[in-house]
Amino acid sequence: MSFKVEEVLRSRKLAKGIYETFVSYHGEAPPPGTFFMVWVPGHEAIPLSVAGYRGDAVRFIVEVRGRTTAALYTAHKVGLLGPLGRQAPVPSGKPLLVGGGVGIAPLLYMKELWGGELLFGAKSAEKVPKIDGIDEVATEDGSLGFKGTVVDLLKLRPQKRDVYACGPPSMISSLKVLAKEMGLKGYYSTEKMIKCGIGICGSCVLEGKLLCKEPWLRLG
């Protein structure tokens, strides 16, 4: 497996420091919950979850955190390696999707394919992406939607549905505590350094598993 040079079709700002980008892609539809290693010429390759697919392009949601993520916004061509990782298990019904930060990316694609309800959390309104697909928002400072974390919002939804969650480690830690308290079942993924994307370097070990090979771990 090697990188394929593809064209960046367009990029659009969604919130402060967050944008979406569409990259040409001519393979089969990526399975939900998978990711690509995206190489930006002159920079490094970074892992990006599939946030959408339209037949000739894949969609990514990106937060600017360094030179590579900043350069991708204005890039014309990139290298794609993937899709990588195992598909997220299929829910038994319409799932409850819980996202924080750019962890919303794979959940948007899941909602597109599976339906369900998407809860999203951010520190403030300026970090909430202006996109379709979000059903309810929680902000920690109360500047938009529910005041509190998205896990606090989830506490108000004691439903017997599969939960699929993706977000920063602090969010996932709180979610795992809540899962034990409420008996929640489902799957989660989180942010972790992924360098090779194919299970060789070992940089993405989480709970004894390589996140690049098995991005979705059981919740509850």
Score class of each variant (00 low, 15 high):
residue 187 Y to D: 06
residue 180 K to A: 12
residue 134 I to R: 14
residue 203 S to V: 10
residue 32 P to V: 07
residue 137 V to L: 01
residue 195 K to G: 13
residue 149 T to L: 06
residue 63 E to N: 11
residue 186 G to V: 11
residue 99 G to I: 04
residue 218 R to A: 14
residue 146 F to S: 03
residue 124 S to G: 09
residue 24 S to H: 06
residue 160 K to C: 07
residue 165 A to S: 09
residue 8 V to W: 05
residue 183 G to N: 02
residue 147 K to C: 06
residue 60 F to R: 08
residue 153 L to W: 01
residue 30 P to C: 04
residue 19 Y to G: 05
residue 48 L to I: 11
residue 138 A to F: 04
residue 77 K to C: 10
residue 6 E to Q: 15
residue 12 R to P: 14
residue 158 P to W: 00
residue 150 V to N: 04
residue 70 A to L: 10
residue 30 P to H: 01
residue 9 L to C: 09
residue 153 L to V: 08
residue 32 P to C: 04
residue 26 H to I: 03
residue 129 P to E: 08
residue 12 R to H: 13
residue 166 C to R: 04
residue 42 G to Q: 08
residue 11 S to G: 14
residue 45 A to N: 11
residue 151 V to D: 06
residue 20 E to K: 09
residue 121 G to A: 08
residue 151 V to C: 03
residue 3 F to P: 14
residue 155 K to A: 04
residue 209 K to D: 09
residue 150 V to H: 04
residue 10 R to M: 11
residue 96 L to V: 07
residue 140 E to P: 13
residue 179 A to Q: 04
residue 35 F to Y: 14
residue 220 G to H: 10
residue 27 G to N: 05
residue 191 E to F: 14
residue 178 L to H: 02
residue 22 F to Q: 12
residue 93 G to Q: 04
residue 92 S to Q: 13
residue 190 T to E: 12
residue 14 L to M: 13
residue 158 P to T: 03
residue 178 L to A: 01
residue 38 V to D: 09
residue 62 V to L: 05
residue 200 I to S: 11
residue 211 L to W: 00
residue 68 T to G: 09
residue 124 S to K: 09
residue 88 A to D: 02
residue 197 G to T: 08
residue 56 D to H: 14
residue 19 Y to P: 11
residue 152 D to S: 05
residue 209 K to N: 10
residue 113 L to H: 10
residue 77 K to A: 14
residue 39 W to K: 15
residue 15 A to R: 05
residue 27 G to A: 04
residue 36 F to S: 07
residue 185 K to T: 11
residue 122 A to L: 02
residue 163 V to D: 01
residue 84 L to M: 07
residue 48 L to N: 10
residue 76 H to E: 14
residue 103 G to N: 05
residue 147 K to T: 04
residue 42 G to T: 08
residue 76 H to T: 14
residue 208 G to W: 02
residue 119 L to D: 07
residue 165 A to G: 06
residue 182 M to T: 01
residue 146 F to R: 03
residue 146 F to V: 02
residue 187 Y to L: 13
residue 71 A to D: 10
residue 88 A to H: 01
residue 156 L to G: 11
residue 60 F to E: 10
residue 114 W to Y: 14
residue 172 I to H: 02
residue 193 M to L: 15
residue 141 D to M: 05
residue 76 H to R: 15
residue 25 Y to I: 03
residue 213 K to Y: 00
residue 60 F to T: 12
residue 68 T to Q: 07
residue 194 I to K: 01
residue 43 H to C: 13
residue 145 G to Y: 00
residue 67 R to W: 03
residue 72 L to D: 09
residue 175 L to E: 02
residue 135 D to C: 03
residue 126 E to R: 13
residue 64 V to L: 08
residue 42 G to H: 09
residue 114 W to D: 10
residue 124 S to N: 12
residue 84 L to R: 07
residue 3 F to H: 14
residue 12 R to Q: 13
residue 78 V to M: 07
residue 103 G to D: 03
residue 162 D to P: 06
residue 126 E to F: 01
residue 57 A to W: 06
residue 98 V to N: 00
residue 184 L to G: 07
residue 147 K to R: 11
residue 6 E to N: 15
residue 174 S to K: 12
residue 77 K to H: 14
residue 139 T to M: 03
residue 13 K to R: 15
residue 102 V to R: 01
residue 86 R to Y: 02
residue 79 G to S: 10
residue 1 M to L: 13
residue 141 D to G: 04
residue 88 A to Y: 01
